[in-house]
Design a protein around this nucleic acid. Sequence first.
RNA 1: GCGCCUCUAGCUCAAUGGCAGAGCAACGGACUCUUAAUCCGCAGGUUCAGGGUUCGAAUCCCUGGGGGCGCACCA
Length: 469
Amino acid sequence: MSDLPYRFEPTATAAELHERFDSLDAGAETDDTVTIAGRLLLRRVQGKLAFGQLQDSTGRIQLFCPAQVTERFEEFGNLDLGDWIGATGEMMKTRKGELSVRVREWVLLAKARRQFPDKWHGLSDVDTRYRQRYVDLWVTDEARRAFQIRSQVVSSMRRRLEAQGFVEVETPLLHAIPGGALARPFITHHNTLDIDLYLRIAIELHLKRLVVGGLERVFEIGRVFRNEGIDPRHNPEFTMLELYQAYADYEDMMRLTEELVAGIAEEVVGTTRLTYGGQALDLTPPWRRATMNELIAEHAGVEVDLEMDVDALRKIASGFDVPVDDDWGPGKLILEIYEKTTESELWGPVFVTDYPQEVSPLARAHRSKPGYVERFEPIVAGRELGNAFTELTDPDEQRARFEEQARLKAAGDEEAMIVDEDYLRALEYGLPPTGGLGIGIDRLVMLLSDAQNIRDVILFPTLRPEQER
RNA sequence: GCGCCUCUAGCUCAAUGGCAGAGCAACGGACUCUUAAUCCGCAGGUUCAGGGUUCGAAUCCCUGGGGGCGCACCA
């Protein structure tokens, strides 16, 4: 029978105590009684005097425990590193100037039956860090920091969007028709309906239905699933912000993006001038705008255009070692050339604009450039941070785009879309001019926490299951 | 999916074909101002698993497993 308490009531956190009492002089004693709780992560017993370092979610505070003052002193000295305890005592500073709680009463809240990692070296095996995040969070300062930043980023994002009149919604994760992006979905099954359902690969189509429904500014921050490879920038489930704004176009979305990201950076890390992977990264608006074709010319040294002969584009692509598929039109060829030669070279931030329509089935045709759409991707540190466009609103045009996608699907393209009749019906009721934007939250947090691996900003990244021993 | 690298005590790491080791943690002891406390003592292992080569394997080879990086795919 365990005699561990069912409840405990700390009156202060480590951070609060430092804020209130750091100004004490070395050797000072007070009558201020506090109760704190946390894990004992360091301990130094010295005969009739013991010191402990208690860590809670806000930081660390020293416990000062003379045998004459601290109850059950012998037992206190036998605590293991990692034990959860609660302690009550008076605030003081040691002669050496370390702020401490002089512990009178204390209670064991939970026993650490497994040994904690080395107090100095911590955990370096990344596999263990990801699998046992509950340990990692205690012993790896950067891990705690990254997830604090993540929390603040999402919180700041919500507040900023709400302040601009955006309404947050939740739409289904289980989709009968996967859509809104070009990606392979996870498939699952509903027993009672006896139908296959897909974990969503994007939020897009439901949110645009809501704009049809009169939610003129709408957003969702939520999990999206793509059945693709895992690498330092990709996790099969990741978090996206998607937002849609009636009456806006992609120029509005560019302004919104740079202001949102810069505002969040300012609020969360205090500056828009970051260092990412040792290189300076300045998120201060305005960000550069450049068309895909201009950037290809800059970085690959070749002029490409949809007007060009397909065979000429094929030749250019092959020249850059792009494996060319016979089915690809000029738009897909240009995109592949861009991704192979240019994208990873862009440090940014830069808005890459004016994508070929062929690879953008949900974006509206460019108002002045035939064959192109009003779409951009914000590129930062050589990677896409998001995707946005002036939304395609014409139901007939959308049907034609879906049918072209369905043709590609039939030809073997597993990432192509299929016709979504209900979405077309919604468009037939009328979607106003609308700007849409998606931002990868994980990627944004990586930038702001200087993380080189997406797993460092996802608490429990997807891993192979451990084998039974 | 392919290629390269990696896996040794709870943690961090040595030992590169010749007796499996250290620091921290644990365990026993000393110590009333420590800061990774210090000092003395004592334990701790299916070297990821299985097979092979060898007088002898943590080390070399093969198969399998976990992880990392790169490529492919993608945001």
